[in-house]
Amino acid sequence: MSAITITYSLSEDAFMRAARALWSYRGIGDRGNWLLAIAAAAVGPVLLLNGFGTGWLFIATAVIFLALTALRNVLWRRAYRKMTKYTAPITATFTADTVETRSAEGHSTLPWTSFGQYAETPVFYFLFMGRRGLSIIPKSAFATDEELEQTRIWMTQLPRKKMRWT
């Protein structure tokens, strides 16, 4: 295949689904944080009732996990609302050598080497540029499985972003 072109949009809800998929991939997902908070909140009072002052530490840990999880969601939603590129459909063209994008922010053609790493979840591809640069590509945007697989082959020439626990 010489070039694969896709067009997609990301609503705020889709963006947050992608963010949560990325967080889970990295081992710091919302679900895990909520479970840790619940466990800490359950252990804390039991320790306090049995005369162990360290129960307060568990309760504080639960509050911190809840606060950080809620804050992260609020900040990412706010960031989405400030991003110009998601105000209109995004068109991306992939070739063996380059990734070309057209969005409300403008047009760019970059070699694959501009992206430092990639990540893949069951529903999304993620391309990373530096510490803060991130492109989210929904797999559902590809017309055929062959296009999806060819793009994956090109993408996997990049280093895979490590999962948190590997």
Rank of each mutant, 00 (worst) to 15 (best):
R102T: 02
Q157E: 00
A21R: 10
A14R: 11
R160N: 11
L148F: 11
Y80V: 04
L68V: 13
A79D: 03
E100S: 01
L57E: 15
R17W: 13
L127S: 01
F52W: 04
T166F: 08
F115D: 05
Y25P: 03
L57Y: 13
P89N: 11
R152W: 06
S11I: 12
R132N: 10
F115I: 03
T121N: 12
I137R: 08
F65M: 09
T166K: 15
L71F: 05
N73C: 04
R26P: 10
A14F: 12
T93E: 12
W76F: 00
I28E: 10
R160L: 15
M16K: 11
E149P: 00
K139L: 07
L66G: 03
L57R: 15
R102P: 00
S103M: 03
T98S: 06
F15S: 11
T7G: 10
P122E: 14
T121W: 08
V74P: 00
S135L: 07
I136W: 07
F128H: 14
L22S: 08
F124I: 07
L75G: 08
Q150S: 02
Y118G: 04
N33I: 10
T5L: 04
G29K: 13
S11E: 05
V63K: 15
Q157M: 01
T5Q: 01
Y125A: 04
G44W: 01
T98R: 08
M129H: 04
A79V: 03
R132S: 04
T113C: 12
L75T: 13
L48P: 00
M16P: 06
L57I: 15
R131N: 14
N73H: 03
A21F: 06
A40G: 07
L66Q: 07
A119G: 08
L36Q: 15
S2L: 09
M1V: 02
L127I: 03
A62M: 09
D145T: 02
Y125M: 05
Q150T: 01
F58H: 10
D13F: 11
L10I: 02
A3W: 13
V63C: 15
L71K: 06
T87L: 12
T109K: 14
W165L: 14
D30G: 11
T5S: 02
S140P: 01
Y86M: 07
K139Q: 06
W165M: 14
A143Y: 12
L68Q: 14
W154A: 07
I137H: 10
S103A: 08
A37L: 12
W165T: 14
S9W: 14
M163R: 14
A119C: 08
E146V: 09
R78S: 00
M129T: 04
I6L: 10
S114G: 09
G116T: 07
